[in-house]
Design a binder for these strands. Structure first.
Lengths: 294, 294
DNA sequence: TGAATAGTGTCTTTCAGACACTATGAG
DNA sequence: CTCATAGTGTCTGAAAGACACTATTCA
């Protein structure tokens, strides 16, 4: 939130070349596609074809109309309020995204002070937030004309959410199970927003160090590989991945430490790394060969 | 425009969990970053270091406050109007972008029927339109709280625009001359939007056939190379570019024809190609080596 | 010791880029 | 013919992926 001077009415009418009262208002909302990597919960049995780790998305069960009882992305209206004393309290869009996340799920991003003016991406403590896109097709919300700005949030393993605000329930759901828990699909056009967010996340793993945002402060190369495998949904060659990650400048930094012990059933101790300083990966870590036509 | 049924007042209040009258309205606008490749106009002399072809952006000179007299991107308010008979005429966001382009510059995209529901990209005749991002920082417009959805438009060589609507003037301006013609910068945060759009365009040339959207229906490999050189702002090796373009499946298709004659000062006739059907380029056409850190 | 996990060596294929060359047409 | 432009051949180095191998640790 930030307070600004109220523009005097005289100046305001002089400036205005648009009278919003002549039109129906267009409401502005934010929706958040929050991703994390977690152990696949017992809901669908233990191991999938790709091991225990799966990409999860944060969903809430709506408590109010429309779509009451259906699952949706957390989100809500952007606040732009004029207080009684005339000061305006206007929320920036990423701030609204963080607030909705906190209100509906209890997950608070540490250091939620979004000061950057760029709409592209913001780092909120350990949570990486970036704008995904804006969805404004008429009729996408039956109540009124709503234009929704969708944000992507990436975070390392987070605790289970607690419902609040308009949400009746909140939960981390494996992305490959979304269609299962809610066959009619998510509320509004959130199924599409989720799909767009997933593709964005998959693409960004290739040429940015985004994967380190899913890992803890210190991580092993194997843990980093499990992030890639969970997001891309396919297994990667451990040896080649290892060499490749270490060959990309600025992706990871060696801490000098190793894990306290090897695997549960034996195995060498792994070196621990932290995120590097590179903003873009060169050369990129490309997804395994898929057909890239049409 | 499309007409929809008016939601009855009773149903509406039942559905509404948000009362827009309790808040200041948030206005929604669209801004368009329209790019084309043109011969560098006489304004700054003839040849730059990269030949005659330069990337141009469409700018308008504002006729109204705020920022009257300053250059800005074409754009304006999204219309969501309830007519006297109760029907609503609501514009989709890409429609609003096309309308503003037409109103302020006289450049009409043929076949402006944007039926796609995806917010990502739309093909409007020969104009490729895609969403760039949304800019909603409080205070970015002194009149009121404005959230602006920016669109990118790519088109082959278009005629000179004619000012209209709120615009006092409209012109294609070489992107490397924007800072020159308007030292204080564009109106609002349009300097940043333009920068974001330019970077997006440069990146998309690498892995999509976007360059063909800048070329005519039929084009030579050299013309395609001039598109890349103009957008990336650096010369490319003609021979290697030629072989590379032909090696990427689905980028271009041979028409069988050639140009009517060779170069003005002699030279072989060039084969003519048309855009291929690929949606993504594999392997990608990467920009010449730059340092990709931080 | 045997199995499991971490990490390395090496070979093949692909591709970007440098450079030289051939092919064709205008003046 | 001469020069300019279109298009190809060939070599080198970087990097991806397949595969085999060594190193270390737990039960």
């Amino acid at each position: 939130m930030r307070a600004e001077r109220e523009v005097p009415a005289a100046e305001r009418s002089q400036l205005a070349s648009y009278d919003p009262r002549a039109y129906d208002p267009i409401a502005v909302t934010v929706d958040v596609v929050a991703f994390t990597i977690r152990d696949r919960s017992g809901v669908l049995g233990a191991d999938g074809p790709l091991g225990r780790h799966a990409l999860h998305v944060l969903l809430v069960r709506r408590g109010e109309m429309p779509y009451a009882g259906r699952w949706s992305l957390p989100g809500g209206f952007v606040r732009a309020h004029t207080a009684a004393d005339g000061t305006r309290h206007e929320e920036d869009l990423p701030q609204a995204a963080v607030r909705e996340l906190a209100e509906e799920t209890g997950l608070a991003a540490s250091d939620a002070t979004a000061t950057a003016t760029v709409p592209v991406s913001h780092d909120l403590g350990r949570v990486h937030l970036e704008q995904l896109g804006t969805y404004g097709t008429p009729g996408r919300d039956p109540r009124m004309r709503v234009v929704s700005v969708a944000y992507l949030a990436f975070a390392p393993d987070l605790p289970d959410p607690t419902a609040g605000g308009d949400a009746r329930a909140a939960a981390w759901v494996p992305v490959d199970a979304v269609a299962v828990i809610d066959p009619p699909g998510l509320a509004f056009d959130h199924t599409r927003i989720l799909a767009d967010g997933l593709e964005r996340a998959r693409a960004k793993l290739e040429y940015t160090p985004l994967a380190t945002a899913f890992a803890g402060e210190r991580f092993t190369i194997t843990e980093l590989r499990e992030v890639y495998e969970a997001v891309w949904g396919q297994p990667l060659h451990p040896g080649n991945f290892h060499r490749k990650v270490l060959s990309v400048p600025g992706l990871v930094e060696d801490t000098g430490d190793t894990t306290a012990r090897g695997g549960a059933r034996g195995g060498r101790r792994a070196r621990l790394y932290r995120a590097g300083t590179a903003g873009l990966l060169h050369p990129a870590l490309l997804r395994p060969t898929r057909e890239r036509d049409a």
